[in-house]
Design a protein around this nucleic acid. Sequence first.
DNA 1: TTTCGATGATAATGCGCATTAGCAGCGAAT
DNA 2: ATTCGCTGCTAATGCGCATTATCATCGAAA
Lengths: 368, 368
Amino acid sequence: MVMRITSPKDEKVVWAMSLHKSQRVTQRTIAELAGVSQATVSLVLNGKTDAGTRIPESTRQRVLDVIAETTYVADPAARSLAGVGNNLVGVFTYEHAFPNESSDFYTPLLTGVESAAEQIGVDLLMFTSAPVIDGRRRVFHEKNRLRLADGCLLLGREMDADELERLVDSDYPFVAIGRRDAADGRIPYVGVDYVTATATLARMALDVGHTDFLYLHLPFAAESTRDRKNGLTRALDVAGVTATTLSSDGSDLEGLWAQIRAAAPTVLFVEDPAHAQSIYDLAAADGISMPGDLSMVVLGERTRPTDNAADYTRLSAPRQELGVVAMRLLDQIMNGTRGAEQLPHQRLLECEIIRGTTLGAPRAGSLT
Amino acid sequence: MVMRITSPKDEKVVWAMSLHKSQRVTQRTIAELAGVSQATVSLVLNGKTDAGTRIPESTRQRVLDVIAETTYVADPAARSLAGVGNNLVGVFTYEHAFPNESSDFYTPLLTGVESAAEQIGVDLLMFTSAPVIDGRRRVFHEKNRLRLADGCLLLGREMDADELERLVDSDYPFVAIGRRDAADGRIPYVGVDYVTATATLARMALDVGHTDFLYLHLPFAAESTRDRKNGLTRALDVAGVTATTLSSDGSDLEGLWAQIRAAAPTVLFVEDPAHAQSIYDLAAADGISMPGDLSMVVLGERTRPTDNAADYTRLSAPRQELGVVAMRLLDQIMNGTRGAEQLPHQRLLECEIIRGTTLGAPRAGSLT
DNA sequence: TTTCGATGATAATGCGCATTAGCAGCGAAT
DNA sequence: ATTCGCTGCTAATGCGCATTATCATCGAAA
């Protein structure tokens, strides 16, 4: 396709594609067509109205007319090099961003991130090229590409403390999703208040008379795992109760169930919703019903409805809101508040407590 | 943080951060520390082994050592400007990319795209800043940012023919997901063979004796909608049967159900899985059971399991594979086959036919 | 000794853009 | 007539990198 363009200045017909060796339409192309300099084109495009740079309306219009006739698009790489922002926000996920059959950890977050990004007018750069090593991605690998984005959102259950420290030190704008302790508390984040929610659930269990607690958690050292544990412990301490604790990565749930039966608690606190589902099924297979024979409280929520999911007594994290708030905070860090209210650099969002049907009065000895 | 670095060449201690006004570590920084020129650093980094450019192992190692001590990362924008690719693949979604509660149109596609992208080693640029206008996004809007990516994947039920034409003409590498007729067949795509799958399902219905077909389709002119219609018509034509046709956007499904009852078919072909579910429920509420009183065939599939979804007789599109193949094709278009087998620029993937339980023998008059 | 090829490295250039310093022109004030 | 201030615009520069043309050195061959 060769585009025929009439230059408003000298009325000579030129062919945009053949002006230079490259067929790309650049500011120079525009400048030549409009009979001005490249600098002028840039000034017009950026609407500069500084004292030193005055462009009369007539010239401005001429340039804009020419641009309208062409397919000119500013090269974002060049803009970036020249030091202006790119309206690009990176999204770094420590695991795969998009769900496979079982996991959809990020989806609700990303839903929120996308809607906020659209409002703010930035594109999302998903760092999918970072290889997943040892089950998780590394921010700093050989060809780190963070700088392509003006700022970055970090999502993942566990993040490397060294990497976070390095990021903070680099002055690169970023926001972590999930509470992060590292780097002397200098890490901007938006997280979930698991402590309060778990404590509330624990008190609910205490209120109906439970004293034999079993806590089933993931083998992670992540803040979110610790917070849940803290919330539980704190609430139980007040009542002078302690919980038996089991850890599982979900690989041997049948063995786990056997251990649970042996421990014979009256209520189960389960961190991972997937485990909860499996245990629910295993219990049912053994003729143990919930909450009649055993109560169960789940400290998380599956996003997708599954076929025969019980209405668990559980907490529900505002995941979509998490994405929105994190995106907005990052925007503020990158571009200032622009008159809006300053968001705190570290913030925990409140969980919803869902009463469900799996917490009832204790019945001792039903597991043995 | 000031980093103390010892230059291997002259053993002089320097401070990386204070070498230049900017604290950024660039190739020049490295060059000075290693006692070589910026060009040499670049050559080492890019592993050039041309005749004209020889770097002995000793120098190479010295440069690499220095790099290892610093936090040097090549600026992708600069690389891009300098003419090398960016390893960025754009993903343009005509609607919102990430699912809200009801729709998860893209998720399975993106899952495939991500896994292929990771293999290929490219990052994904989601064009979320393109405003959604009239219910869909425009590729070419004021500040089109396509060029930031080396190539682009286009996803959406309907795409603007003019935009596609313009894209083809621009020589910009892209691949559409879904069959696209526009631009004289010059559009690279990976789609789904709805014609064959629908025809197969239609023959299955004919085989068990149906002659009163009702086809319920979406009010779109998209290729995928036309293909399903063609498949159905083609199979029915052979048998000398015609189908009644109804169109619905899902806004008045009760009215639609009334229309269906009035038409009194023995089998329903439903394009949209969500509609199928609603109709199934409405039928059940009227005491109409499937497939006893009415058969139903669904020409699509929900991705997420819903609470009380029937096991519909349906087609199942290989959506994840679609994403993978599209990504690979785009890679080939951008970078050549690199020895791999050349993928066709236009390709339809085969659907799986799921027999399900909603297609049975016809029973006339059960709806009236 | 001169020539020659091979070797090891560098200066220079350009990519497309934003930005700054400053120039030329011109009417008005001195 | 000279100065001044204002207007309208442009030349020049740099961002960080890849790449090309070129140069200096050196050992060996003639």
